[in-house]
Amino acid sequence: MIKITNLEKTYRTEDVETTVLHELNLQVQEGEFVAVMGPSGCGKSTLLNILGLLDDPDAGSFVFDGKETVGYSERRRAELRKHAIGFVFQSFNLIDELTVYENVELPLVYTGVPAAERKQRVKEVLDKMRIMHRRNHYPQQLSGGQQQRVAVARAVVNRPRLILADEPTGNLDSSNGNEVMDLLSELNEQGTTIVMVTHSEHDARYSHRIVRMLDGQTVAENILT
């Protein structure tokens, strides 16, 4: 599903140049659950941003579903993103002015799903995340675990084939964290491919494969079963 070859990414400010990714290679199969680990600054998040088409590599190739995405216009990337990719963030990133229901509905609004169908699909996913009873609350009125469940609901409501999770349990206590990891596993079992960046060995064990990164390159892989 994902094939990355010789990826390069450098950030430049006026006088400092920082190479974040260097000759990075990675493949992810359809239905896989991959955890990316490594110390701070090793390039995990940049990798995730490129996978999510939020950022552009400087060089190298990123083939998604057999199609080269490097050089895609902003418009095509947004198209691909909204149909195929869901995101889960460490800090949840819910819109404060929208209710739980509206936050989850948002991706459907942008993909132009008709209102009636939207209603049904949001209800479905909220039920599944066991957060339906909170649908009219605003994010500030929820606990961290609940907020992350809403974020996961939002990530999956469009039925994406790939979920990118950036330290999804980083802001949660262990019981809430486990709950979220269970949810992701469940989604993976139902066929969704997941790439997760994490610092937590515990969370990484939920995955099929751990990719370890250092200084912008993959240095090791552990296959878990």
Binding site: A78, E79, K82, F87, D96, L106, P107, R154, N158
Partner: peptide, 16 residues
């Protein structure tokens, strides 16, 4: 800013 970011992540075009 966060709102804009989230909207873009879930697929909003700049024009939208």
């Amino acid at each position: 800013a966060k709102e804009v970011g989230v909207r873009k992540v879930v697929g909003a075009q700049r024009s939208e």
